[in-house]
Computed example of a mutant assay.
Amino acid sequence: MLTKRGERLWTYEEPLQFFGVEIGRIMSVMKLSSGGLFVQSPARLTPKLRAALADLGEVRFVAPASKLHGHLYMEQYRAAYPDVELLAAPGLPARRSDLRFDQVLGDTPDPRWGMDIDQVVVSGHRWLTEVAYFHRPSRTAILGDIGFHIDEHHPLKTRLVARALRMYRRVSPPIELRATIANEATFRRSIRDVLAWDFDRVIPGHGTIVETGGKSAVIEGYGWLLE
């Protein structure tokens, strides 16, 4: 149900089809120094998943990657955990007016999770502003749509589409995201802020987790921007 990835870090993977292509999605669960749980990109809260989370601790914070990624089931966590705080990426409150958010995330982490988790707002794109996270205890960077990682473990159709979008076997966004950057200098600065973290593992928004060598993989995947 939950896979332990590192010190106080677990993941849960579930299927996701986008225009008929299976890309999957990954939820990350981080246990804070306080004992509470920080859930990024929440999955559908099934009874089995709820029981697995209860074994780890109390769900305290639930966060998305962006207004497009990782918010679909947040209402289930609000209903299940009355004291939970729902965190919003920039632009998400307008998209999910049905939810009450406790905080809109920026570049500065809240002190309640800041000892364990850092965050960067990746901006400069026309329509996607994403929050990237760094889990210090496990040296893990956690991304959303700015970090697909489709490789040989995926179905043939998914691999073919990834090749066409120039993101096969690399930690990278699809080609259409690259083509719609509004401010390249701002976007580049955001990616450099992510690369300033001391991470080894990368959890992508979609695809295969990079267990080691993650920083090099991001540098290679973003060579088109950083060179």
Rank of each mutant, 00 (worst) to 15 (best):
R44P: 13
Q103K: 15
V84E: 04
V62D: 04
V131C: 03
Y168A: 12
D118S: 04
S97W: 02
P93K: 03
E7L: 10
T212G: 05
A164W: 03
Y73L: 02
W127L: 14
H69W: 04
I203T: 13
F19L: 13
V21M: 03
A94P: 01
Y81V: 00
K48A: 11
L9K: 14
S216H: 04
L2M: 12
R178Y: 11
V120R: 11
I203C: 04
A54N: 10
D151W: 05
I142C: 05
I150K: 12
K215Y: 02
R25A: 11
A54I: 10
A132S: 13
A43C: 04
V120C: 06
E13P: 00
V210R: 09
E7T: 13
Y73H: 12
M74L: 12
V210Y: 08
K31P: 14
R5L: 13
R139Q: 14
M74K: 10
D102I: 00
A94W: 00
G114F: 12
G221A: 08
L16T: 08
T186A: 14
H125A: 08
S216C: 00
V122M: 14
Q103L: 15
P82E: 01
M30T: 10
R112F: 06
A179T: 07
F18H: 04
T11P: 06
P93N: 11
D145E: 15
I142V: 15
A43R: 02
E152C: 05
H206F: 06
T180N: 15
I219C: 09
R25Q: 10
A217R: 10
A164V: 07
M115L: 15
S28N: 11
I150Q: 09
L195Q: 12
Q17K: 12
P111D: 15
